[in-house]
């Protein structure tokens, strides 16, 4: 569990997806709890951090979404290929739900600046 929380999540081609901000448990037929999904997003992170800092984080992030409370990006644990210094997924980032804040900023800010489609290297 401690090995999992706060780890970097990396997709199948090395892109950074987010951190493991929280995890979701399920209980199997044998009554033993297991990690069912990884959760990533400022909503769950803020809730876990708690206090004023956590609340401010949630409020700041919720400015970018319409449906509140904001849902985290949910990654089924079955998509995890292996874990070393990061949690590596067996799928590319396109196959996962996108972060709403990233989407909003891309659409309204960054993609509007000339040259946004070309890496400077």
């Amino acid at each position: 569990m401690r090995q999992l929380l706060d780890r970097q999540i990396v997709d199948s081609v090395g892109r950074l997806v987010g951190k493991v901000d929280d995890v979701e448990f399920a209980v199997g037929d044998d009554g033993v709890a297991y990690v069912h999904a990884l959760l990533s997003g400022p909503g769950v992170l803020g809730a876990r951090v708690g206090g004023r800092a956590g609340r401010m984080l949630v409020l700041a992030a919720e400015r970018f979404v319409t449906d509140r409370p904001m849902a985290p990006v949910r990654i089924p644990f079955a998509l995890v290929e292996r874990m070393d210094s990061a949690v590596r997924l067996r799928v590319p980032a396109e196959d996962l739900p996108a972060s709403p804040v990233e989407e909003w900023l891309r659409r309204h800010v960054i993609a509007r600046i000339p040259g946004a489609g070309r890496a400077s290297g």
């Binding site: 999540i9 997806v17 990233e102 946004a116």
Partner: peptide
């Protein structure tokens, strides 16, 4: 844990 750096496209 965001994507960062100058090697990826800004978008």
């Amino acid at each position: 844990g965001w994507q960062w750096g100058k090697r990826v496209r800004p978008r």
